[in-house]
């Protein structure tokens, strides 16, 4: 088994040693994750209520979405989670180049996800599949329902995409620091970043079936 990078310089006030710092960072991140669960939870309650009341609208909306593309997006995020695990591993082992490389891979996969998302948004907006309900212009109940579904779609995927953007920025900053710097970044910080990134993945794992897989059978 490779040696853990446990240099005393990695420890920051007010912690006494690496194990102490790791336990605190991990707890802090899980507290943060708990609040993210409730933050996104609000959207899922809205979604659930809407789907229970208008199952046909959600089914019709789901059929308007691009399942193959979304499947590729899911795979992209899952693989990026795996590369993030390798980045954390590199940091724990004190492998600077490995850390920079795996972070860069994670960041590139995240950018690919965002590119697909942007293409998808562009496609829907061009097709007139927008969330804004203009009651005077809506020619039918179906049209109003579609607008409502796309309200759900844009808000849920939008908040997720914002989290991806935030992650990409921090990943890029850490990757550059690892590639340039002489000193290794604290691996506990990379572990925290990893926890955040996996959380973004977990949220998508629920968004994907909720929106894209509704109403295909």
């Amino acid at each position: 088994m490779a040696e853990l990078h446990a240099d005393a310089r990695l420890v920051r006030e007010p912690f006494t040693d690496v194990a102490h710092q790791r336990a605190a960072v991990s707890l802090g991140m899980w507290v943060f994750i708990a609040q993210e669960v409730l933050f996104f939870g609000v959207l899922f309650v809205w979604y659930g209520l809407f789907r229970a009341q208008h199952p046909d609208v959600v089914a019709a909306g789901g059929r308007a979405l691009d399942v193959p593309l979304a499947t590729v997006m899911t795979v992209t995020l899952l693989v990026s989670s795996f590369t993030m695990v390798l980045a954390v591993r590199s940091a724990m082992l004190g492998a600077r180049r490995g850390l920079a490389g795996w972070l860069a891979a994670t960041g590139l996969l995240a950018v690919a996800f965002l590119a697909m998302k942007a293409w998808e948004y562009h496609h829907h907006i061009a097709a007139g599949e927008v969330p804004v309900v203009d009651l005077h212009a809506a020619s039918s109940v179906v049209e109003a329902g579609r607008a409502q579904f796309f309200g759900l779609y844009f808000v849920m995927t939008g908040f997720h995409a914002l989290h991806v953007v935030g992650g990409v920025l921090v990943i890029a900053w850490r990757a550059l620091a690892a590639a340039r710097g002489r000193e290794l970044p604290r691996w506990t910080a990379i572990m925290g970043l990893g926890l955040y990134w996996h959380l973004v993945d977990v949220v998508w794992l629920f968004v994907f079936p909720a929106l894209y897989l509704a109403g295909h059978a």
Partner: peptide
């Protein structure tokens, strides 16, 4: 202070 499940300090 340092509590973990026993193997948290091992690289994944």
């Amino acid at each position: 202070r340092r509590e973990d499940g026993g193997r948290a300090l091992e690289p994944p």
